[in-house]
Amino acid sequence: MARLNINGKLRDVQVEPDTPLLWVIREQVGLTGTKYGCGVAQCGACSVHINGEVMRSCAIPVGNVKATDRIVTIEGLSATSSHPVQKAWAALDVPQCGYCQSGQIMAAAALLKKNPKPTDKDIDEAMTNICRCGTYQRIRAAVHTAAGRKEA
């Protein structure tokens, strides 16, 4: 049994405490925008925000998460896909298959919150999620667009 604050709502879930947060979000809570890619904190497909920090939810046992921790998933990033990152992603046609993009968008949103005008080097360091389709060039450009400036 765990009590979670996800996208501003408190949810009680029946689950073993060693279950990764990713699977609780996907299976018990039913929000499937957060993806499984590796399960070992390598790919970032499972990225969510916890108290404003981007975290890889596949590597966090749900038992370590408190009801006071604010979890935001891709579904909770904005009500109408209006976050600047989402808008930039749409304008630049970033996604290919799209499977990694929830995680990419969550990583970019967290980066911009901390660093509203990231340099290319900042983007290199913060955006470490895997995209097997290879959308990296457009991700970089879209982060700059979301930051309100042309590509550095």
Partner: peptide, 8 residues
């Protein structure tokens, strides 16, 4: 593209 941006 639209539904690839919001998890839907």
């Amino acid at each position: 593209t639209a539904d690839k941006l919001n998890g839907s």
